[in-house]
Amino acid sequence: MRDFSYLRAGSVDEALSAAAMPATMLLAGGTTLLDLAKCGVNAPERVVDITHLKGLDTIRVDAEGAFIGALAKMSRVAADPAILAGFPAVSEALWQAASAQIRNMATIGGNLLQRTRCAYFRDPASFPACNKRVPGSGCSAMEGVNRGHAVLGTSDACIATYPGDLAAALVAFDAVVHLGERKVPIDDFFLLPGTTPHKEHAMQPGEMITAITIPASAAARHSTYLKVRDRQSYEFAAASAAVGIEFETDHETIRDIRIGLGGVATKPWRARAVEDALRGRVLEPDTIKSASRLAVEGAIAHGGNHYKIELAPRVVERAILKSGALA
């Protein structure tokens, strides 16, 4: 790891002005920054420690929804009784992610900004080509080992999967990312790779995530997160789905349904086609099965990841059934 200078920010303003300097990174939980510095992907000249800032780790839930400070730790948010009650999919996505140690370190803001697990991206010494690391240098994953790679939202430049679980739940329930005063809907916060896979989000230099908010909804209250992976714990999703359902008063017609997908797309993915096909319909197995196929409309596989086109709809289907039983 290349050495850097270290600054402990005393205020958000101080952190922001430092973050506007070139080759500067904000340090929160450190689980991504230091990991990627050791891989040689990150080489900051200045690291600005924001972990000593006060008041940025608030968790507050009221009738409007949830307010989660950027420095709240994953473990605290996952265990928060009001989050569990109002947004169970968010809690489940968090405790099924990473390990207990990492959840005690990693913050909510940092969690959103975690980088892809693409093995080519993470290994610059062996694989100099990576359009995400070095724009225009090429992509080794297209023809390489791409079992974990995305089938949705890909481009000719990049098929790297967005690995996070939390964001899949947040995108389902229309969370908003607060960059100080500027507020960005989470679906707009994350960018598709297109021809610029090195640009992953809408944040500008000199901005930082200060909080996220999630509007309260009946669908969020009756939600679940289903994560399918190669091993049962401490593993990224092969495919995952956050689903929340609200029924009409007849308890069988779907009034509102939200579906976010993880592990299969280049950004946290909202399965709107499935939602549209199910809204107003009665929840019954055949309807769900056929609607769930729409989750992978337009999907493109690159060999190793072809199974995800079959897996993702099955995960969606199971998650809808599970969520429907809760509502």
Partner: peptide, 13 residues
């Protein structure tokens, strides 16, 4: 009092 990974924690932090 909480378990963390010392390999991903800076001493100065």
């Amino acid at each position: 009092g909480e378990r963390v990974l010392s390999c991903l924690t800076l001493a100065v932090q």
